[in-house]
Simulated scan of single mutants.
Amino acid sequence: MTVPPDIEAFEERAAIAEFDGGLSRADAEDVAAQAQGFANSDRYWQWLADYVVNRRYP
């Protein structure tokens, strides 16, 4: 991943997957992260944390 993920799109997709799709929040976040090219939500959040701490793309 070389560009910052779209946080608004992530949150919207996760909400739709959770409420309309009947997924747990964790599963819904995995779906949203995968839609942006991440293996799962843990990788997504780690990428964002690294970006914030280092102020550059990981």
Score class of each variant (00 low, 15 high):
11 E>G: 00
8 E>I: 01
21 G>D: 03
35 A>V: 04
52 V>L: 14
23 L>E: 09
42 D>L: 05
9 A>F: 13
7 I>F: 09
57 Y>R: 06
11 E>H: 05
5 P>E: 02
2 T>N: 03
23 L>I: 04
34 Q>A: 13
48 L>M: 15
48 L>F: 11
52 V>A: 14
38 F>L: 12
53 V>F: 07
27 D>M: 15
53 V>G: 00
58 P>G: 01
13 R>T: 09
11 E>F: 09
31 V>P: 01
17 A>K: 02
17 A>F: 06
12 E>H: 08
49 A>H: 14
6 D>G: 03
52 V>M: 13
29 E>H: 08
49 A>V: 03
22 G>M: 09
58 P>I: 01
56 R>P: 00
4 P>K: 07
58 P>Q: 04
22 G>I: 07
56 R>W: 02
8 E>K: 08
14 A>L: 06
38 F>T: 08
10 F>A: 11
52 V>Y: 14
35 A>R: 13
5 P>L: 07
8 E>D: 10
4 P>Q: 08
56 R>Y: 04
7 I>K: 11
20 D>M: 08
42 D>R: 12
31 V>R: 03
55 R>F: 13
39 A>L: 14
18 E>H: 09
34 Q>I: 13
27 D>G: 06
34 Q>G: 12
53 V>A: 10
8 E>N: 06
49 A>Q: 12
40 N>C: 02
9 A>E: 10
51 Y>A: 11
40 N>S: 12
48 L>W: 15
45 W>E: 07
41 S>D: 15
23 L>V: 02
15 A>Y: 07
34 Q>H: 10
30 D>Y: 12
22 G>Q: 07
48 L>K: 05
29 E>D: 07
39 A>G: 13
46 Q>G: 01
16 I>N: 03
40 N>L: 05
27 D>F: 05
13 R>S: 12
51 Y>E: 09
57 Y>A: 07
43 R>C: 09
14 A>T: 02
47 W>Y: 14
32 A>T: 05
55 R>D: 15
8 E>P: 00
35 A>P: 03
16 I>Q: 06
26 A>E: 15
37 G>F: 08
50 D>I: 00
15 A>F: 06
45 W>N: 09
51 Y>P: 00
46 Q>A: 11
28 A>P: 01
23 L>H: 08
44 Y>P: 05
